[in-house]
Amino acid sequence: MSEVPVLDPAQRDAVRSAVLAAAVTPQKRADLVKAAKAVVTAKKDKEKKAVAEGVIDEMIQAGELHKQSAAATAPIGITKPPLKNDPEKVRAALLASAETPQTLAKLITAAVAATKADKAFVTDEANKLISSEQLHKHSTAAKPPYGAKKKEAPHALDIAPGKAAFAGLLKAAKKVTNVAPGVSLDEVIQRLRAALANEVARPVPVVAAPPPVAPPLAHPEPAPVAAPITPEQIRSGLRAAYDELCLFPEFEDKLVEIRRLYHTAARLLPGLTVPQFHHELEHLQGLRQLELHSLNEVQQAKEPELAIRHNDRLLYYVMWGK
């Protein structure tokens, strides 16, 4: 930070005011220096520049001025730059795109373009929306479209058996109009509606019910106890969860985060504990069916308690063998 020559309070306030006025719209540093020099009373240009540079550095240090990006020549303004990875904006962009159901990859691409956020961050937010049932799968395809609304169930007359029954009714109605050409379609529909209403309104004979008999005393049965998950079930569930996650674009390289594997496996295997999860992963690694990889930047780990600590390493990723 440049050292500011000794200034009287009035001179310093004038320089600060000039800089703040210029930085309302983010400016290059050189332009802010020029605005500051205009109010410095020193005679030499070198002294004016030293004063301007020093005051600007002090204001940046104090949080009164803000660089608008990490670039060395980034503009400087009085407002903080917008947050790049803003979860609210990213989720809003994803849901807006999902008004028209489309694949997860296309939703992520659209949200990245709209928000300029990092693709990895957008992908993570998209998966959170799926987990919280705010994005809904619209098919069972390998790469299904996702929509902001649940896929509506088809009308009962558009699927079996209603579809075939309605087709038969339509055929019968056409036959009526053919054999009775003087009868309009409206009259056919009107008579059909009246006949159906008459069928519905026809009283049903009432059969006297026998007097009630007190039921025998029943002994409450003990609640069934859920069977424990076997190791074979866990290993099968882990592979199914891994295959499901590999369908996401972020895991196309087949290197899956262990924490994400646990959450997906726990959904497929209710009651799965973290110790069981860790034990079976290490067992499968011993059988050379999969590989566990460590995370170099441990401080960046999300949910580290779901990863596996081995000596001084944090095993954070899993890759299944072919």
Rank of each mutant, 00 (worst) to 15 (best):
S69L: 02
G54R: 02
S69T: 12
D57P: 04
A30K: 11
E47N: 11
S97C: 00
V40K: 06
I78Y: 08
S97Q: 02
A71V: 08
A62D: 15
G63H: 02
A71W: 00
I78G: 06
L65V: 02
K49V: 14
K80W: 10
A38S: 15
K34Q: 13
D45H: 03
P87K: 11
I76S: 10
L94T: 04
A62Q: 14
A42N: 03
K46R: 15
I60Y: 01
K37Q: 15
K37N: 12
K84T: 14
A71G: 05
R29M: 02
K37C: 12
E58H: 11
N85H: 11
Q68L: 02
A38E: 15
L32Y: 14
K44F: 04
G77I: 00
G77E: 01
A74W: 00
E99F: 09
Q27V: 06
S97Y: 03
I78M: 06
Q27N: 06
L32N: 09
P81S: 04
A52M: 05
E99W: 10
K43A: 13
K34G: 05
T41R: 15
K37E: 14
L94S: 07
E64H: 01
L95F: 10
E88D: 10
V40C: 08
K43S: 12
I56A: 04
V51T: 03
D45I: 08
K48Y: 01
R91M: 06
P75W: 11
A38L: 09
R91Q: 13
K89V: 08
A93V: 00
L94V: 01
Q68K: 07
A50N: 11
A92T: 01
L83W: 05
A96T: 15
E53Y: 08
S97T: 00
K46E: 15
K34E: 12
D86F: 02
P87G: 11
Q27W: 06
T79D: 14
Q68V: 01
V90C: 13
A42R: 09
A62E: 11
V40E: 08
A38W: 10
E64G: 00
A50K: 15
Q68G: 03
L83M: 09
D31R: 09
E58A: 12
N85D: 14
T41I: 13
V33S: 06
Q61F: 13
A35H: 12
V40M: 07
A74N: 06
E99T: 13
K48H: 01
I78P: 02
A74I: 00
K80Q: 15
K28H: 12
K49S: 13
A92R: 09
K89S: 07
A92W: 00
S97D: 03
D57S: 14
A62Y: 11
N85A: 07
T79V: 06
D45Q: 05
S97A: 14
V33C: 09
E88F: 05
P87C: 05
A50I: 08
G54L: 04
Q68C: 07
A35N: 07
V40D: 10
K80C: 12
E53G: 05
